[in-house]
Design a protein around this nucleic acid. Structure first.
Length: 535
RNA sequence: GGUCCGUUCGUCUAGGGGUUAGGACGUAUCCCUUUCACGGAUAAAACACGGGUUCGAUUCCCGUACGGACUACCA
């Protein structure tokens, strides 16, 4: 794409690179999880926002696995991430599994390229070797704490007392390196400098460099830390916007400094730090414990930790529909600015802007998630819903035609929250009642009900037409008129006899689905078995 | 402790110098339904506090309080 002349004209006064690049660069964003366990719902939201942003702006969304900490690697976690995003319908353009032009997409596989960047910083005087052992580090912190230093850290002051290439003679440094002694490379944070960044959500954030510490860039095992790896990779992968959780905000100034020292300021991505997802009660970050405490999932998929054996519930397994889940998640911290709440994925892409992401933490409310699920469940065609019911029935060993299952779902969906409710609340469509709701029986089972049912049975027997809801109702009306009993008086009893419970979909529709013969059988059974309730 | 971020109904939020502070979930009540829901309607429910600035502040500024994140050779 050629630059237009106006921009070239401006370039006399403003740096051309930044204007040029910002306008011409394709939007590229990434989700960079660590494979250390199940992907938290907050992570899914971060991925979702990245995805929505990319698609909205005609850009690319990619996944990069940040597995630089080998000690925290958990088998299966990577697969879990992949499956979670797939379930939620968050599609990637580039990732470790399908690859892409900027691979590899696993930091462990990029290991070889980080050292040269760290060394580049050392050469430029922005980083240095450090040989301190962890015991020495601990001792330093203890010493500083004892001296009531407010923040004991490896920084411009303390580094002068430690074992590093700034304090040791050059020869000794060389000797130590040559001897294979373990070392790390630390960034050399300037003593006095104001570091600022313009966060897309929070505006200007300013931090004084004196509060930053000399973070480790290269670990002694030859792996980079997150701070180094994420800057190098984002740069190499052409990332234009970094949308990540608020927990990264404190280290963002460090990252800005790194871009500066590498000389990549012109293409430094824009940052957007997302508000946290909080516990539904009280305060704090939403955690696994909340799931256990409140009985709802905080992870997209069910997960069993291979190391601890600990198990967590998943939204998928709990019966949440992917579209409902995504819709719910999108509104947790973002809003469209109008009063609409129901958004398909495509509509979310269309409506999404970073500007409308809120600043404050968001408490997690499962009620709202359930509401979304109900909305999406009702919008689904009955045949699609039937698949869920058919699956439940198969587990129970009950045969059923797809047509009947669809019909059951059709009448049940108005009252269901989860697909599993079709079976749970609608067992009576498939199983004759063997027991009855005692409370209803106590209240509604009486001579009138028995008389009404007896008369109804006669009418059903006498009629030879195929039963429909209308016919079922007409016959009941006739029976009741003959007996001189009001419908309202016995309806609950009739329902109880036929379904065994006091609540359910329209009874006449239930009768149609169950069929005349079965209804008659159930009436007989109820009359025989509920005698004790007649006073 | 230090640094940074935040604070509108119980929850998610809209709004923004003058509003009856709007919507949604949840809750309650009523209507519809000769059954159960769905649906509809109504109600209760919020600008953390104190100073400024201003004719006027929930909105802007500064404090305080409260909450949170970060403070590893973890990400």
């Amino acid at each position: 794409m050629p630059l237009n002349f106006q921009i070239i004209g401006i370039s006399k006064h403003f740096p051309l690179h930044s204007i040029h690049i910002n306008m011409e660069r394709e939007v590229r964003v990434r989700f960079a999880p660590s494979p250390t366990g199940a992907l938290h719902i907050g992570g899914v939201r971060t991925a979702l926002y990245n995805y929505l942003f990319a698609k909205k702006n005609g850009g690319k969304f990619l996944i990069r696995i940040e597995d630089t900490d080998q000690t925290r690697f958990v088998p299966g976690a990577e697969e879990y991430i992949k499956e979670s995003l797939a379930w939620a319908g968050i599609e990637t353009d580039e990732d470790p599994w399908k690859g892409g032009p900027h691979g590899p997409y696993r930091q462990s596989e990029r290991k070889a390229m980080y050292m040269q960047y760290a060394l580049d910083l050392v050469e430029k005087g922005h980083a240095y070797y450090a040989f301190d052992t962890s015991e020495e580090l601990d001792a330093m912190r203890e010493r500083l704490t004892a001296a009531r230093v407010v923040s004991p850290q490896y920084n411009s002051i303390t580094r002068t007392t430690m074992k590093n290439s700034l304090t040791l003679p050059e020869d000794e440094v060389k000797a130590r390196l040559a001897s294979g002694e373990p070392y790390v490379i630390r960034i050399k944070i300037p003593r006095k400098e104001e570091v600022r960044l313009n966060d897309m959500i929070r505006g200007w954030v300013m931090v004084h460099s004196s509060t930053l510490d000399d973070k480790v860039l290269m670990k002694s095992d030859g792996m980079p830390t997150y701070h180094l790896a994420n800057i190098v990779d984002d740069h190499l992968m052409g990332i234009t916007h970094v949308i990540r959780g608020e927990e990264w905000l404190p280290s963002a100034p460090l990252h800005v400094l790194l871009y500066k020292y590498f000389g990549w300021e012109d293409t430094m991505p824009q940052f957007a730090h997302l508000p946290l997802l909080l516990k539904p009660d009280g305060n704090g970050k939403l955690s696994k414990r909340d799931a256990e405490k409140h009985g709802f999932p905080v992870f997209p998929l069910e997960w069993t930790d291979p190391n601890t054996g600990g198990q967590v519930a998943g939204f998928r397994e709990s019966g949440y529909l992917p579209d409902a889940f995504v819709n719910f998640l999108a509104l947790l911290g973002w809003n469209p600015g109008n009063q609409e709440e129901i958004f398909s994925k495509e509509q979310l892409i269309e409506a999404f802007t970073v500007e409308r992401i809120g600043k404050s933490g968001t408490k997690f409310d499962i009620n709202k998630a359930n509401w979304f699920n109900e909305i999406y469940l009702r919008a689904k065609p009955n045949v699609e819903l039937a698949e869920y019911l058919l699956a439940s029935l198969k587990q129970e060993g009950i045969a059923c035609t797809p047509e009947k299952a669809a019909k059951v779902c059709g009448v049940m969906k108005e009252r269901a929250t989860f697909p599993t409710d079709f079976w749970k609340e609608g067992k009576f469509f498939f199983l004759s009642p063997t027991s009855f709701d005692e409370k209803i029986a106590e209240k509604k089972w009486n001579n009138d009900t028995v008389n009404a049912l007896t008369a109804y049975k006669e009418e059903l027997l006498a009629n030879t037409e195929t039963i429909t809801p209308e016919l079922a109702k007409a016959l009941l009306t006739t029976a009741l008129e003959k007996k001189g009993i009001g419908m309202g008086k016995v309806m609950q009893g009739v329902r109880l006899a036929i379904t065994g419970v006091g609540a359910g979909p329209d009874l006449m529709e239930v009768i149609e689905i169950i069929g005349k013969e079965e209804v008659i059988k159930r009436i007989d059974f109820a009359i025989d078995n509920l005698k004790a309730y007649i006073h």
